[in-house]
Design a protein around this nucleic acid. Sequence first.
RNA 1: GGGCGUUUAACUCAGCGGUUAGAGUGCCUCCCUUACAAGGAGGAAGUCGGGGGUUCGAGUCCCUCAACGCCCACCA
Length: 1031
Amino acid sequence: MATELPKAYDSKAAQEKWLTFWEGKGYFHSEPDPEKKKYPNGPYTIVIPPPNVTGALHMGHALNNTLQDVLIRWKRMQGFNALWMPGTDHAGIATQSVVERLVLAQEKKTRHDLGRDELVKRIWDWKDKYEARILGQLREIGASCDWKRTRFTLDPVCARAVRETFFRMFRDGYIYRGKRLVNWDTHLQTSVADDETYTEDTKSGFWTFKYPVDGMPDTFISFSTTRPETMLGDTAVCVHPTDERYKALVGKLVLQPHTGRKIPIIADGQLADPELGTGCVKVTPAHDPNDYACWQRHPEIGIINILNPDGTINEAGGEYKGLDRYKAREAVTEKMKELGLYVDKSERIVPMPFSDRSKTPIEPFLSDQWFVKMSDREDGKPGLAQMSMDAVTSGKVKFFPERYARSYLDWLGEKRDWCISRQLWWGHRIPVWSRPVQDQDGYKASRARFMLEPEIRTAHEQGRLEFEYQGERASTQPESRTAPGRATAVVSTTSNFIHVCIAGDDAALVSKLSSLGFTQSDDVLDTWFSSALWPHSTLGWPGPALPEERADRTAPDWERDRYYYPTSTLVTSRDIITLWVARMVLTGLYNVGDIPFHHVYITPKVLDGFGEGMSKTKGNGVDPLDIIDLYGTDAMRYGMVKLATETQDAKLPVSNICPHCGKEVAVKQEHMYMRTKKLTCPECKKEFRPGGPWQTDDPDRPTAKQGSDRFEEGRNFANKMWNATRFLLMNLEGYAAGPVNIAELPTEDRWLLSRLATTTKAVTAALDGYKFSDVARLLYDFVWSEFCDWYIEMSKGRLKDAAARPTAQRVLAGVLDGILRLVHPLMPFVSESLWQALNETAPERGLPSPAKAEESAAIAAWPSYPDAWISADVEARFARMQELVRGVREIRNRYQVDDKTKLDVAVKCSAAVAAEFNALAAFIGPLAGIATLTAGPDTAKPKQAGGLVKPDFEAYVSLAGLIDAAAEMKRLEKQITDKRKALDGTRSKLANEKFVNSAPAEVVQQQRDLLADIEKQIATLEENLKDLQSA
RNA sequence: GGGCGUUUAACUCAGCGGUUAGAGUGCCUCCCUUACAAGGAGGAAGUCGGGGGUUCGAGUCCCUCAACGCCCACCA
């Protein structure tokens, strides 16, 4: 006799047990198999979107990684060589600022106090801790990653790929030095990222001035500004092209009085708004993002930087040089007053950007940065952006859902150059060494001298070293196109450099460069530069394996691991389609010459219960580990799969589980957003802190876990399968594996197998189309409604019948076997538990012929059943039987009948049931289990069992008084009215010639059948009503 | 400002041109029946956001209005 399972599924016990088991067996490790010896289907590869090492897993990760695991487990079962590459991302800004904040809070030190090396060391410590935590959490959700291949975007393998890519792009002229407006913190003298700034509404002056038009005495053009000092850097004034007031002035020059420069009046529809202010704006490209963009459209106007890094005016400001920008503001305004060019001043509230860290106002500041050129090439061939677009428009890379291809194409279509340098310390340092051009005769002489160095020349000849000089190499920089004559000088303190890039790590070359006065850039690369390489860098590109790779890892080796490239599917969220997906395609095509993945599946977004996105700053996150703890990992995964629908983002309302008494306390919106730090349980009146992503514990009160009933379905489903298996194991005594002949099976078996085959097909198709929610629904319906509610119930009688028992056992075991396979990708723990239990008692099972089951569900073959099993006829007949049984049950329930005679009367009075009953009378016989289905609560008592199967219709009418005749008549009348409505609708449809002519034949036939059906139903209802009335 | 999406039962969501619109949860009634009370059986509950249109036929397609959400740009 089989070991008996406990009564309920214990998710916690299963989780650790099977994780250890799977890992011990090495199921998740993949080795290339180019000869297709072991895996004729070839590889199926997913690279994980590497989570940041900044913190813990959140609900988005849970969703994203569950779906990846579903795919990878499914493909593994389908016989693909499945590889899921795990890893983490160093996430430059995010990680550095987290650690900086920590250091500041704990030691009151800034990064400058620590110094670069020390700060970087602290961040590595942080990374080691949080990487371990995140990977541990991933493992806990059941992620079947090939952990031996775990990578980090800063590890040597990835660093090598970064260096190689940078070098190649530099060599090929795709990487260039250019200028960009950054958020400048004049206090800390550093640039800050957009998300390290905040805007505050600030009271500010709003001045209006006028410039005299050159050559037209008494003609002025007036404009308004909140920053008068930037007039020193004006290079144009701008009006709207359709503005009649200024049309005649466009193309004329005006005098910039402080500097004496003459600047043009230009027309630009994007910058000037004729409705606003005077309709005319001053243009200061170096100190305003909009003006900067305008300059890019009109490069001939020139660009002038007037600020020093400390916020004082530089030499471009002439007599104002050295003044603080706010002092300069007053002085500049004063001068305009003196000249009679001041019009007026008002007060205005303007949003002003501030630096998070110094709390001082941000200055847009022109600085030198490195860029990747995205535009088309001068030789007419597609550039990087175009190549990446072509990969999608040609269909080589497909998006699911399709509409997201549009975001991708729109964004790449702008072909905006990619700024890849960041003024940070945490990241891949830019592999460029620079030195100012020292010689009077400029770059050419400088280069000639440089090339006289033997090491340098040799390295260059061998293609290990490349250098560039501003302006000589191909550049899209507008300044190189500045129109002669008109031009204001380009003022930059850093223009005249020789920049040298070397391939790979070459200590000798570096030291040579150093001796020649070259220093390496302080900047690091944009995080996305290294994550862009993720699909090929993690596979060891450009190869071969690095010697320093630890022995206990599988050292990635491009020669060998190229096998996995292109990867199969990328699963990610829509907000990084541009930042990440587009750039992976780009670098994949550029480095490898092939797309990085065939499919991109974009996941829905998990919203809070109030429809807003979850974020750390809002404090409305939900911890997946809370969910796992309360409902189990299988339930969490099922819930995630269920909400992964095609179009919808999903709201996830949560409640706080009181840590004292377990009462569920509803969450109000204000409880999130970190406003409410304390709640009182309405049940036990004790205090607790609401759940959420709190950084630390509150010593005074425990933190609630967050629950959500959206996970109950999955938990209950796991338990249902657990108990179905438990039932089977209790009834397997005498089980003998053997083939079944479908043609000889009773109706319910044929129905079940038809449903199993249909479901299997549908599930496989849904997975193929990334319709995850459908997968969950199909399985739930089949397992719960069809297998448990109907088939198992009907099998109970047969299991007691010695003749029918062996077949029933085989079908039960065979179908359960299929169910466990189908469910495994979604709910690996419960399915593995049951698989193992079943293996003990029925190791040989399967339909139509048994075979020895695999040792683990994780490597069991994905099922597929013959189409011939699918029988519309059997399914239709069974469906009518179900209707009948439901009808009987309804009567039984409605009248609470436990007496056969009374019940039979009630049945007669329920028209639908009576009609079905007659129609099915001939069919009921062979359904061995029907008695169980229609019996009441006391089935166990033999005298009642089966009492309803063959009703004696003649006896009813006279007994009608036993039921509530008035209520029943009312009900019947309502039913008749409803049916007549339906009848009218159908009739008018069929009377309509256009319908009959233009609708598909089967639809018309459907309507005819329906009409006949309704007519019959009405007739029966009316007859019953009459019977009832006369009784 | 541009783009995308959503609006169907009390809640969370399916349904995307053709029977009398579904599920889970919640609610009501009955039942601790030897797989499962994390369960079984049944029931009540919806003018499918408003308004137009296309069609023989519209939650389903088109237009429009409204509300909500997301992404991007921007706020002299």
